[in-house]
């Protein structure tokens, strides 16, 4: 554990909490892509199956359980509790275009050809593209509420901090995780355009039409 890794995890947690609290307090999930949130729940589910097989640390276990619980709570709020406010007409990104290549890639490139390892790889690849339905929705409607942009900022920052963590670990431990690093860099690149708009235009984002 180093400062970049800890800051990355905190940033990830903050992002998820911002989104959950926004939906809970406004009793609305307008402007939020339910499809992206389902993909994130799938990411956590397939990655954290090792909760049942190996014990790493109390921190590791607690964080995994928290991320799983919060991601399912978010999906529940969008599709059940506040489904009247769900903007399904603009949440139309075809997720099969993400899932099919990601499933294929996880079978081709993995650390071991076992169910758990393939699912772990699937989750890493899927995480890198899971935000695309949300970004697509913002492009389609041409706007995002400021609180939604804060969510995206912290979510992007999390993987960017993980990159710093990987650089740090490579230099201090000589350790690197090729699949996670490549996917993490790809994931962060998707946020660059958003980061630019966030910084230059301020919180509320309107895409040029």
């Amino acid at each position: 554990m180093n400062i970049f890794r800890l800051a990355g995890d905190v940033s990830h947690l903050v992002a998820i909490l911002i989104l959950l609290m926004k939906i809970w307090r406004s009793k609305s999930c307008a402007g939020i892509s339910g499809r992206s949130q389902v993909l994130f729940a799938l990411v956590f589910t397939t990655r954290y199956l090792d909760l049942f097989t190996v014990y790493i640390s109390a921190y590791n276990t607690v964080m995994k359980v928290v991320f799983l619980a919060l991601s399912y709570a978010t999906v529940y709020l969008i599709y059940m509790r506040f489904r009247n406010s769900y903007d399904s007409e603009n949440d139309t990104f075809r997720v099969e275009f993400l899932l099919i290549p990601v499933i294929g890639l996880s079978f081709l490139e993995n650390y071991a050809f076992t169910p758990l390892e393939i699912l772990w790889t699937f989750s890493i690849f899927l995480e890198s593209v899971a935000i695309m339905p949300q970004l697509f929705m913002i492009t389609k409607t041409g706007e995002a509420e400021s609180i939604t942009t804060h969510y995206l900022f912290f979510l992007g920052l999390y993987r960017a901090l993980y990159i710093a963590n990987w650089v740090w670990r490579y230099h201090t431990e000589g350790f690197y995780d090729q699949i996670a690093i490549v996917s993490g860099v790809v994931q962060t690149i998707f946020y660059c355009d958003f980061f630019y708009l966030y910084v230059t235009r301020g919180e509320e984002i309107r895409t040029p039409s």
Binding site: M1, R5, D9, H12, D50, V54, I56, S57, N60, M63, K64, F67, Y111, E117, W120, Y162, N165, F175, Y176, D177, Q178, I179, A180
Partner: peptide, 10 residues
């Protein structure tokens, strides 16, 4: 290239 999976990262 050496390939290792990180087990402790989230």
């Amino acid at each position: 290239a050496k390939k290792t999976k990180s087990k402790d990262e989230l």
